[in-house]
């Protein structure tokens, strides 16, 4: 899911950097004192989860966990995911510095979308309903990220449909795993600390 340096056109990189800066500013403004520990925890979760890969045939895929970040943080997911991507680029060379902006947009905007589309169904819901909507949010965030990655490559010259098919089909196992993981996480949060879903995000 990390697009590497040199794969995208300059225009895409500039637009990605600008949008991610706006998202960062909005995310930092909407991060109250009590949300900082959750933001840090989810940044660490994303940082580690993206390093873990799921073997699939001759290749392998990694978890993203942006769905859970979006459901819990809203716009504050942008700085959380940005920090995770930055540390991965610096420590392990995944992605890169020039593509940091567009990678942040591709991972964080679906998280924010899930916040607005799915979280209303979780607030005040029973834990079993939270399990379902958490799974929907987790799977949807990854699916949207794959489409945005394909769109980024398409704008940079690749053909959209074949690229989108390749990225989306290869990430179907990740969508399923993340849906399960997000559903279980949201179920737990609904049971033990449902107030984490409160706030404007």
């Amino acid at each position: 899911m990390h697009i590497v340096d040199g794969a995208l056109s300059t225009q895409v990189l500039v637009v990605g950097a600008a949008v991610s800066c706006l998202g960062l500013a909005l995310g930092l403004r909407r991060m109250p004192l009590d949300k900082i520990p959750v933001t840090g925890m989810l940044a660490a979760t994303f940082f580690v989860a993206s390093l873990i890969h799921v073997p699939l045939g001759p290749s392998s895929l990694h978890l993203i966990m942006n769905g859970v970040a979006g459901l819990l943080l809203g716009w504050a997911a942008v700085p959380a995911l940005f920090i995770g991507l930055l540390l991965q680029a610096v420590f392990f060379g995944y992605g890169g510095i020039t593509v940091l902006g567009i990678n942040t947009v591709n991972v964080a905007l679906p998280a924010v979308a899930v916040f607005y589309l799915v979280r209303p169904f979780i607030i005040g819901a029973r834990a079993s309903q939270g399990l379902f909507w958490g799974a929907v949010g987790g799977g949807l965030a990854v699916a949207l990220t794959t489409l945005m990655v394909a769109a980024s490559l398409w704008v940079s010259g690749d053909e959209f449909i074949p690229t989108a098919k390749l990225v989306l089909i290869s990430h179907i196992p990740v969508v399923i795993i993340e849906a399960l993981l997000s559903g279980a996480t949201v179920y737990l949060v609904c049971k033990v600390k449902p107030e984490l879903f409160m706030g404007r995000g």
């Binding site: 390093l51 873990i52 990694h62 978890l63 737990l188 033990v192």
Partner: peptide, 21 residues
């Protein structure tokens, strides 16, 4: 169900930590 979800989270993390990206 809480125990099941805890087990699922733990299991997925253990299984997927077998290798790295």
């Amino acid at each position: 169900l809480i125990r099941l979800s805890q087990l699922l989270v733990l299991l997925l993390l253990i299984v997927s930590s077998a290798a790295w990206a």
